[in-house]
Amino acid sequence: MGSRIVSFELCGREVEVLVSPMATLQSVLRSQLGYTGTKEGCRQGGCGSCTVLVDGEPMMSCLLPVEDVEGRRVTTIEGIAPVAGLAPIQQAFIEKNAFQCGYCTPGMVVLTKTLLDHHPSPSRDEIIDALGGNVCRCTGYAPIIEAIEAAAAGATTDAGRDAGDWPDPSGER
């Protein structure tokens, strides 16, 4: 009774974690496993900042009891980036100014990843449809849509370049 061990695949790695009954995947990722890329906004399923992929399908981790992902494959924003550098989607978000505060960005990027896995060249309407559950209070969405279009078209300047090559806002490096 009570706590139990749950094991699942997290970003390509097997994890085992002792959880209290019905802890949400979101809270286990953030507080127990140190995967803080998954954000916590509303905890109501209404903002999308906690979006993760379960067996490749987007879900709101704030509404998902962690026991329900036993034996399944979970991908968070930490699993989208290659070991070194950035994924093309991340690069596209930078180049199109698709974030300001960045709070919605992990959810947006995770969603984009699975959208492009399902539809390599989505129409603008399909992109808008896919984003329906992910709220951004900063950008007004247009740059996000453009970033997704750019990522789909492979139109980022230097996909996957090293993170150390980011433009440095201070101008000195």
């Binding site: 905890r43 399923g45 709101m60 509404l63 998902l64 009891p65 329900d68």
Partner: peptide, 23 residues
């Protein structure tokens, strides 16, 4: 699916002690 029940639990509006998931 929990999409109605979990928001209420997260907010402390619903305070169940025993829960059964049908997934």
């Amino acid at each position: 699916g929990g999409t109605v029940a979990m928001p209420l639990i997260n907010d402390g509006i619903s305070l169940p002690r025993q829960v059964m998931g049908l997934r």
